[in-house]
């Protein structure tokens, strides 16, 4: 913690050389704390929410894929929920920011034909599984279990979409 004597008026006046030191310290005191680095789960949560929204759009646009895409939307939505719960547990949201959790990407229109829609679903699941699998090896135990389960859940969803 930076203490008062370092920036006391008298000290600054008497020892001119100190001002060079004291000025940046005073600035450091007056600026807000630097933001924490982003939680590594944030990206997974954003992607899960975006995947759920994209799958829901495909489910309503492609009747032939309604069931499979609906399941992807449900399960990826569940992933987003448990990830957000873990993010909030680790860093409780401040009252001012609680209304806006992690932003989701702008929705893109669903692919026009069933085959490309199916490919889009599969590709998103493959990417999500890869990202989660890589993260598993770097996380504390509890989170490793959660994120590993999400990776396995994405791999299992691919079977449902096939």
């Amino acid at each position: 913690m930076i203490s008062a004597p370092a920036v006391s008026r008298r000290g600054v006046l008497v020892v001119g050389a100190l001002t060079a030191l004291a000025a940046p310290l005073a600035v450091a005191c007056s600026t807000p704390e630097p933001p924490l680095p982003p939680d590594p789960l944030t990206e997974l949560a954003v992607q899960a929410r975006a995947d759920a929204a994209a799958a829901a759009a495909i489910a309503s646009a492609q009747p032939g894929l309604a069931e499979a895409a609906g399941l992807v939307a449900t399960n990826r939505g569940e992933h987003a929920k448990v990830l957000q719960a873990e993010l909030d547990r680790a860093r409780p949201p401040s009252p001012s920011s609680s209304a806006a959790p992690t932003k989701s990407a702008a929705p893109t229109p669903p692919p026009p034909d069933p085959q490309s829609a199916k490919t889009a679903l599969t590709d998103a699941l493959t990417a999500a599984e890869k990202k989660a699998s890589e993260l598993v090896l770097t996380l504390p135990n509890f989170r490793a279990g959660l994120v590993g389960s999400i990776a396995a859940g994405c791999a299992a969803l691919r079977e449902a979409v096939r």
Binding site: T74, S149, A152, G153, L157, E159
Partner: peptide
């Protein structure tokens, strides 16, 4: 998880994939 989903699909056991295997 993948084989469980495959067998559930083969057997028509819904849902074919659970969100959080394990």
């Amino acid at each position: 998880a993948v084989r469980a989903a495959r067998w559930r699909r083969t057997g028509g056991i819904a849902p074919f994939a659970v969100p959080l295997p394990g």
